[in-house]
Every structure is written in structure tokens, then in C-alpha cells.
Design a protein around this nucleic acid. Structure first.
Lengths: 196, 196
DNA sequence: TGTCTTAAAGCAATGGTTTTGCTTTAGTGG
DNA sequence: CCACTAAAGCAAAACCATTGCTTTAAGACA
């Protein structure tokens, strides 16, 4: 098992009080939204004072809560990567895998996806990258559980992470060309053949 | 083929004059050394003015040559990752692979190695990450050529990158625990078995 | 060797970002 | 309703990044 985590949020204070809807939550939402809006208008515009102004808070609030720009961007990126729906159920294990993984490839290899990966890795602290793997593993686990329920024999999630997700992300981060749907298919089939 | 590059240096000016040993080269060496020294004394100390002071240059020199701190750190990281020796020749393909890849695992999973990977990915521009893959591929190509010369049938380098290097680096970057020698052995054997 | 050319480094001023002590406010529990 | 506490605002200071102009040094050529 590579990593599993289950925290709900990342930098939310939550010390004693602070329920959802409290002042902290409002500030966090406003800041996240401000970051997303500024990301759209070019990378250079994303600066702490600019974010603060747009979110209607002071820079010191951001610095005190997130530490620095890199950690704020990482926090926003992770919350964007959190899956909001279950993987589609196509009725067959291999097809579920191909469908979800190709969508993952598509999202992660986009300009926005690459930025999110970079933001997550650029900040110090190992929690955020761990959360990415965790989100991914959760979705793959869901697909595997459905396969088991159908009587199919799914591949271990760890093997999928090593055999498909890893080359996918490695190439997105390091290689000149982003991987294709065919690459994903090839990797998935290799893993399924090997484990079968 | 994922990527191949063969540039000699990265940010060296080299416009018309500027031979090795000239003023530019001396500044570059001094700055690189200053970065390495400061990296050792804690991450927070690595700032452009600090580097400039230690290297005996002015900050504007650094900003003009490298653009910003991230690009300088990426440049230093890449030049540290450039291999300075050929992979060891142990007489057998599988053993050559295991020896070199486990050493690579050791270097990349160290604190310093993780910092270098992060620095390379944090800077904008896709050349530097590409150089990392390239260095790695060159070493694996050398091992493969030796194997062919011996009459062994080596695995394609691209397959090794996807099957071994990718999970290695993916886990170093994203997972909580760094991969072990056993992981490398497992990945290498899986690739060899599959291709054989 | 001496002069010319040019790329790169130095200097210094400016503007933006980060950091910090102190004050104020909003949410929570008694 | 009041007291308490964590978080936000404010403002000043320190620090970092950027830029125009000047100076230096390396190489080219006579």
C-alpha cells in the first residue's frame, strides 16, 4: 500500500470552534475562488497581494494561514483534484479502468492539470502529494470493488498505480510529449495480462 | 521514444566569445557552488541575495542570467543530476540494470535527490525535466548496448522508463514511503519477464 | 601588443512582496 | 448576555525583485 489518507481539509484551522460556515470557512472559500479566478488571467497575476485584494482580505491573513504562496497554490490544487463523483460504471472492469484512467490522463495532461501537479509538488511538506495518490487510489478501489461484486478478478490498486498511473504522471511531468489514450490502453492491458 | 536531448549546458551565454574559463564560466561556477553550500545550511537560507553575496556577485547578475530563483535552482539541480561516469559493467545485463537502477533509486530518494527533483519541476519551461529523462535514458542505453554486444537481448529503454523509472520517481515524489531495493528488483524482473 | 567591440557584471534607485507587533472583530461556550 | 479565544485587520519595517545606466573584461583584429 503506497498511501492512504482521509483528512477532510488541509489548512483549515478547526482548532476549537470553526464550524462550516464560520468566518474561517468563508475566508478560505473566498481565497480559493480568488486564486482560481487569477489563475485564469495568467500565471504572473497570481501573487499574494493580488489574491488578497480580490478575496477581500489582507495579505497578512494569507501569509498567516498558508505560510506562503506555494502552499496556498498547493492547497487549492489539491482541493481541485479531489474527485467529486464516483467513476462511471460501464458494466465491465477493463472498460471501467480505461474510461476512468483516460479521463484522468486527459485532466492531468491539460495545461491546468500540469499546473496543479507542479503546484502540489512545489510546496514543502509531503501531505499534499500524498493526498493526490490517495484520491486516485480511492477511485481505483471503487472500480475494483465493483469488479469483485460482479465476480471479476480485479488487479490490485497498487499494481495499477505502479503500472499505469506512474508512467502517466511521470511522462506528463518529465517528457516532452504528453501520453495518449493508446498509451493508457497499452499500460492497462499489460497490467491486466500480467496479473491474470 | 520519450525524449532525447544533447545540449551541453543550460543557461550559459556563449553568444560569440565566452570560452570555458572566461568570466561567464567563472561566475556560473561560483554561483553554482554558492547554491550548493547554502542548500546544505537549510532551505530557507537559499535566497538570491544570499547566493549572490556568497558567490561574490550582485543579485542583478543572477536575475539577468537565470531569470529567477526557481530557474537557478533547476539549473543547479540538473547539472548535479548529469551523470559523470558510465554505469558499472558487471558482466550481465540484469545485474547491470539492478546495480545502476538501485543506485539511481538511492540518489533520488535521498533528501537531496527529492529537492533536486522538486527544483527541476518547479521552474517554468520543460527543458530541464526533459534533460533528467535524457540523462537516465542515456545510461540505460549504454547498459543495453553492452548487453547486445554480449549477445543478450536487452529491454527497450522506453519500456524500462515506463516500467521501472516511472514508478520509482512517482513514489519518491508522491508517496509517503520511498521505494526500496526490493521494489526496484521486482519492477526490473517484471519488465524483463514480460519482454522475454 | 594595442585598440576596438560587445556581452556580461556592477551600481543604485524603485517598486513590490513578505513579515511582524499590536489591535480589533467574530464566533463559541458558559 | 458576557467572557474567552482564534483569526483577521492594520500599518510599519525589512527584504526581495526589477530596471536603466555605467563600467569592466574577454576576445578579435590589425
Amino acid at each position: 500500500m503506497i498511501l492512504r489518507m482521509n483528512e477532510t481539509s488541509s489548512t483549515a484551522p478547526r482548532a476549537s470552534g470553526a464550524r462550516p460556515g464560520g468566518r474561517s470557512a468563508r475566508v478560505q472559500a473566498a481565497v480559493h475562488q480568488a486564486v482560481n479566478e487569477l489563475q485564469a488571467t495568467g500565471r504572473d497575476a497570481v501573487t499574494v497581494p493580488a489574491i488578497a485584494a480580490r478575496a477581500g482580505v489582507t495579505p497578512s491573513t494569507i501569509y498567516r494561514r498558508w505560510g506562503d504562496l506555494a502552499q496556498l497554490l498547493a492547497d487549492v490544487a489539491v482541493s481541485q483534484m479531489r474527485p467529486d463523483t464516483l467513476p462511471a460504471d460501464t458494466g465491465a472492469y477493463r472498460n471501467d479502468l480505461l474510461t476512468w484512467l483516460d479521463q484522468y490522463r486527459d485532466e492531468m495532461s491539460s495545461e491546468l492539470g500540469r499546473c496543479m501537479l507542479r503546484d502540489v509538488l512545489s510546496a514543502q511538506g509531503r501531505e499534499n502529494p500524498g493526498r493526490c495518490v490517495s484520491f486516485c487510489a480511492q477511485q481505483l478501489d471503487t472500480i475494483a470493488e465493483r469488479a469483485s461484486a460482479r465476480g471479476e478478478r480485479p488487479v490490485r490498486t497498487e499494481v495499477l498505480l505502479d503500472g499505469v498511473v506512474a508512467p502517466l504522471i511521470y511522462r506528463i511531468l518529465f517528457a516532452a510529449e504528453t501520453p495518449s489514450t493508446d498509451d493508457v490502453t497499452r499500460w492497462v492491458d499489460a497490467v491486466i495480462d500480467r496479473e491474470a
